Amino acid sequence: MPRVVDEAALLVTELARTSSSTSAKESPPAGKAAAAALEESVVELIADLLHRTAARGEDPEDVLDRAQMHFEAEAA
Protein backbone atom coordinates (compact mmCIF):
# COMPACT_ATOMS: atom_id res chain seq x y z
CA MET A 1 0.00 0.00 0.00
CA PRO A 2 1.19 3.52 -0.67
CA ARG A 3 2.29 5.51 2.37
CA VAL A 4 -0.69 7.89 2.11
CA VAL A 5 -3.06 4.91 2.39
CA ASP A 6 -1.27 3.70 5.51
CA GLU A 7 -1.53 7.17 7.03
CA ALA A 8 -5.22 7.44 6.14
CA ALA A 9 -5.87 4.03 7.67
CA LEU A 10 -4.21 5.13 10.90
CA LEU A 11 -6.26 8.33 10.90
CA VAL A 12 -9.53 6.47 10.34
CA THR A 13 -8.69 3.99 13.09
CA GLU A 14 -7.92 6.84 15.49
CA LEU A 15 -11.13 8.64 14.51
CA ALA A 16 -13.13 5.48 15.16
CA ARG A 17 -11.44 4.98 18.53
CA THR A 18 -11.95 8.52 19.73
CA SER A 19 -15.49 8.94 18.41
CA SER A 20 -16.70 5.78 20.10
CA SER A 21 -15.17 6.52 23.51
CA THR A 22 -16.68 9.03 25.89
CA SER A 23 -13.48 9.23 27.85
CA ALA A 24 -9.83 9.04 26.87
CA LYS A 25 -9.37 6.54 29.70
CA GLU A 26 -11.77 4.03 28.10
CA SER A 27 -10.38 1.18 26.05
CA PRO A 28 -11.00 1.04 22.31
CA PRO A 29 -14.30 -0.55 21.27
CA ALA A 30 -14.31 -4.24 20.41
CA GLY A 31 -16.16 -6.45 17.96
CA LYS A 32 -19.20 -5.09 16.17
CA ALA A 33 -18.95 -1.71 17.88
CA ALA A 34 -15.40 -1.28 16.60
CA ALA A 35 -16.41 -2.26 13.07
CA ALA A 36 -19.34 0.18 13.15
CA ALA A 37 -17.15 3.00 14.47
CA LEU A 38 -14.52 2.31 11.82
CA GLU A 39 -17.13 2.29 9.05
CA GLU A 40 -18.63 5.55 10.28
CA SER A 41 -15.16 7.13 10.38
CA VAL A 42 -14.51 6.07 6.79
CA VAL A 43 -17.83 7.62 5.73
CA GLU A 44 -16.98 10.84 7.56
CA LEU A 45 -13.54 10.97 5.94
CA ILE A 46 -14.99 10.46 2.45
CA ALA A 47 -17.64 13.11 3.09
CA ASP A 48 -14.98 15.58 4.28
CA LEU A 49 -12.93 14.92 1.15
CA LEU A 50 -16.01 15.51 -1.02
CA HIS A 51 -16.68 18.82 0.77
CA ARG A 52 -13.08 19.88 0.06
CA THR A 53 -13.47 18.82 -3.56
CA ALA A 54 -16.63 20.91 -3.96
CA ALA A 55 -15.00 23.88 -2.23
CA ARG A 56 -12.26 23.76 -4.88
CA GLY A 57 -14.91 23.99 -7.59
CA GLU A 58 -14.67 20.37 -8.67
CA ASP A 59 -17.60 17.99 -9.12
CA PRO A 60 -17.73 15.52 -6.19
CA GLU A 61 -19.76 13.04 -8.26
CA ASP A 62 -17.04 12.99 -10.93
CA VAL A 63 -14.39 12.44 -8.27
CA LEU A 64 -16.42 9.58 -6.76
CA ASP A 65 -16.84 7.98 -10.19
CA ARG A 66 -13.11 8.19 -10.87
CA ALA A 67 -12.29 6.87 -7.40
CA GLN A 68 -14.66 3.92 -7.89
CA MET A 69 -13.08 3.08 -11.26
CA HIS A 70 -9.61 3.36 -9.72
CA PHE A 71 -10.63 1.09 -6.85
CA GLU A 72 -12.13 -1.51 -9.17
CA ALA A 73 -9.05 -1.51 -11.41
CA GLU A 74 -6.79 -2.07 -8.39
CA ALA A 75 -9.05 -4.78 -6.99
CA ALA A 76 -9.06 -6.74 -10.25
Rank of each mutant, 00 (worst) to 15 (best):
A30P: 02
E58P: 03
E74T: 08
H70Y: 03
E26Q: 15
P29H: 00
A24G: 09
L49N: 00
A34C: 07
A8K: 08
D6V: 13
A34Y: 03
D6Q: 09
I46R: 03
H70N: 13
T18F: 08
A33R: 04
S27P: 10
P2Q: 02
L49F: 10
D48R: 12
D62R: 06
A73R: 15
S27C: 04
A67G: 08
P2W: 06
K25Q: 11
E39I: 02
A33H: 06
A47M: 01
A34E: 11
L38M: 14
A55K: 07
D48S: 14
D6N: 11
E39T: 12
D48P: 02
L11D: 04
D48L: 12
A67K: 02
A54H: 14
S20Q: 05
A30D: 03
K25R: 12
L10V: 03
E74I: 11
S27M: 05
A16T: 01
D59P: 06
L10A: 14
T22K: 10
V5P: 11
A47Y: 00
P60H: 03
A47H: 07
S20F: 07
V42Y: 01
T13A: 15
L38F: 14
A75I: 05
R17S: 15
M69T: 01
P28F: 06
G57V: 02
R56T: 13
R52W: 03
